[in-house]
């Protein structure tokens, strides 16, 4: 009796284990199925390499090049903010801050990493955009710079939290060996600790970039929404995510427009999928390496 019950429970649990895979496959299938109309109805070369996006014109035009460029540009500028500051802060916590300071700051960083993006977006719209508008004398503060700064600041705690973990995992013996050879703290940090934690640090950066590329609300609120190919970081732009969010409400269910938005989603999904694949690979390597070190 008990044996049967055990077997039933085990098989039920084993089915649930595949839930996340099922959802992942479900997402791909759903995105693909809803993109079919667009995949068939829009010339795919034009879809990828034209920057004319005019779903309400007749004939409607669907080219996403400007959105892809906007996404990339915002991603790069935001990375320029969050990588140096995020890693700098992680190094500070690991090397300079005392243990009492670290004990307080580490949880604070983790809590900051959990702040919803809508709050950053709101701050950017209410405070940062008018501020930058004044400084640079812009027609509108809603531009790439505002969005990138906000995304960059939002992802600093993400990088800091993961990179600091990686730095903390470096065995103390590594550092001691370096000190014993006469290396000072900076030399030890740059030649021993950082290389030993490199894969963890790189993983943190890739995760942050994934967050930036996939983030919707901030770019929807403060990137400006222009469909022209951006010429400077003070120009307004409309990345892939905000196009989906901005137009999905108006697109008729099943229409070519609706389907084209799903195809953007499909592309977005594969972009983050690849980023995640790379970071998985790197962190697997890193686990093996440090596993032997400890």
């Amino acid at each position: 009796m008990n044996a049967l019950k055990e077997k039933v429970i085990k098989s039920i649990l084993s089915i649930t284990a595949f839930a996340s895979i099922a959802f992942l496959i479900g997402i791909v299938v759903t995105l693909f199925a809803n993109s079919l109309t667009a995949l068939k109805g829009i010339d795919q070369i034009q879809f990828l390499f034209s920057s004319d996006w005019a779903p309400y014109y007749s004939p409607a035009e669907y080219g996403i090049l400007s959105m892809v460029i906007s996404s990339a540009l915002i991603g790069i500028t935001a990375a320029l903010v969050c990588i140096p500051l995020g890693i700098g802060t992680a190094l500070y916590l690991n090397e300079i801050a005392g243990s009492a300071q670290r004990k307080i700051l580490k949880p604070v960083i983790e809590i900051l990493a959990g702040i919803p993006s809508i709050i950053f977006g709101f701050f950017a719209m209410a405070v940062l955009a008018p501020f930058l508008q004044n400084i640079f004398d812009l027609p509108s503060g809603l531009c790439i710079l505002t969005a990138s700064l906000t995304l960059g600041i939002m992802t600093i705690p993400v990088i800091t939290s993961i990179a600091e973990d990686a730095l903390g995992f470096v065995p103390i013996g590594f550092k001691e060996a370096s000190y014993a050879l006469g290396g000072n703290r900076w030399q030890t940090l740059i030649k021993v600790t950082i290389p030993a934690a490199a894969s963890g640090i790189i993983t943190s950066i890739i995760l942050a970039i994934g967050r930036i590329v996939g983030e919707t609300m901030i770019v929807l609120m403060v990137a400006g929404g222009s469909l022209a190919i951006p010429t400077s970081i003070l120009a307004p732009a409309r990345p892939m995510t905000s196009t989906i969010a901005a137009e999905m409400g108006e697109a008729a269910y099943g229409s070519l427009h609706f389907s084209a938005l799903f195809e953007i989603g499909l592309l977005l999904f594969f972009m983050t999928f690849i980023l995640n694949f790379i970071s998985e690979r790197i962190s697997k390597k890193y686990r093996l390496k440090l596993g032997q070190g400890r």
């Binding site: 595949f18 997402i27 809803n34 590329v213 996939g214 995510t241």
Partner: peptide, 28 residues
């Protein structure tokens, strides 16, 4: 390993894509 990869990939899906999935599957 496969299940864990699935979990970590699901965690990295952009939130707007979840929105699309919810719209297509649950709403429609």
């Amino acid at each position: 390993d496969i299940v864990k990869t699935g979990v970590s990939n699901l965690a990295s899906v952009p939130s707007v894509v979840f929105g699309l999935f919810g719209l297509a599957v649950f709403v429609k």
